[in-house]
Computed example of a mutant assay.
Amino acid sequence: MSNSGEAMSDLICFSHLRWHFVWQRPQHLLSRASQDRRVWFVEEPQTAEGEPRLEIVPVNPQLSVVTPQLPLRLDEAAQRLALQGLMESWWRTRAFDMPLTWYYTPMAWAFSSTLPAGVVVYDCMDELSLFQGAPPALRALEQQLLARADLVFTGGRSLYEAKKHQHKSVHAFPSSVDVGHFAAARHWRGARPLDQDGVPRPRIGFFGVIDERLDIGLLRGLAAVRPDYHFVMLGPTAKVDPASLPSAPNVHYLGMKGYDELPAYLAGWDVAMLPFARNDATRFISPTKTPEYLAAGRPVVSTSIADVVEPYGERGFVRIADDPWTFARAIDNALADGPERLQRVDTFLSTMSWDRTWQGMQALIEMASRPVAPTGRPGSTHAGPTDPVFAGPAA
């Protein structure tokens, strides 16, 4: 939180993710931002009958979700013009005074680039251009956004390395964790989820979006080589045909769960897993669930995702394996883990929090908002270190 005592400008976020979907980085950060300032979370448009309009729904007194409603059958150019008109009208109606604008998707730059803004932040949490179905215009719009942005934050070390030469002020803020929320799973005293309670043990669990990042072949192989282990999959399915997912008596798809429900499910797992494919979509990911699993006290097995291998794999907090046989053996070993592992994990996690991440970001935003100094030193809109600023312990 800021100690300046001054009224802080509104924050307007443009996101490719919806607020009421999986609770992840945008929700963690922007709910904290709303403690100090008014936050408007602008989602991608939905189709609706009638004239173009904005649907604005409060989440709390300081944060609202803004969803453009556009008529069906508008082509890309017409959508862009409609969105630009809606944003310009809304800007005038609300009399926004050089708000802080925050981008998760460069696609929003196509209709928002002319809006009067103060500090512009690009919080790059994924390399979206590598995702399945990425719009062809995304790369060019990202370059335009980078040319205007005052600050670029990245969701992990790999993304930092990919972006650090593309802008003067790039800062790495890897995925953090609400330790207290997930640590409740270690000594759970609440009700046990009914849909999981009947699943035999040992239970090997995963939560997250089930999409092209999941290694379907690995999951199918694990179910086959360890028929006595039961694999619990929590989360919505996106961009994959549910019929293509492994179907076996020991694979259980329990659907999407709320953030508040996750500790109860984790409490009933023996091992947590990250069965990610190694493809373009996962090349730069920094899974938020890694420290969340660890905070819950679960042993973790993951494929060799770069931002999991370093720091978690190299410190011995997460076992790394990529094929069904070695992954299964890693699960075998994880089931034998003793409590001594948790002490080292807890020491590592003690320096990580979303509060700390937001405070670090806020400090850089305040620095970027100062007038440009004649020396070009602190006070420049691109001030701040060019080396990564990490939310967790240094490597």
Rank of each mutant, 00 (worst) to 15 (best):
G5W: 12
S9D: 12
R18M: 13
R25Q: 14
P26F: 03
L29F: 13
L30F: 15
D36L: 07
W40Y: 13
V42H: 07
P45M: 07
R53F: 11
Q62W: 07
V66Q: 11
L74V: 04
W91A: 06
R92V: 12
T93V: 09
A95I: 05
T101A: 11
Y103T: 02
M107C: 12
W109S: 07
S113F: 08
T114A: 11
T114R: 10
P116K: 06
D123M: 04
M125V: 15
P135S: 14
Q144L: 12
A149R: 01
A149K: 02
F153W: 10
T154P: 09
L159E: 04
L159K: 04
S175M: 03
V177L: 09
P193Q: 09
D195P: 12
D197K: 12
F206N: 01
I210W: 03
L214I: 15
D215E: 14
D215T: 11
I216E: 07
I216P: 01
G217V: 00
N250P: 02
H252T: 01
L262D: 10
L262R: 04
L262K: 08
M273P: 03
M273V: 15
P275K: 04
N279I: 14
F284I: 03
I285L: 13
E292C: 07
E292H: 08
R298E: 03
G313D: 09
V318S: 12
D323S: 08
P339R: 06
F348L: 04
F348S: 00
T351S: 11
M352H: 10
S353Q: 08
S353G: 11
W354A: 05
W358Q: 08
M361T: 02
I365F: 05
V372I: 06
P374C: 07
S380R: 01
H382M: 06
P385D: 05
A391T: 15
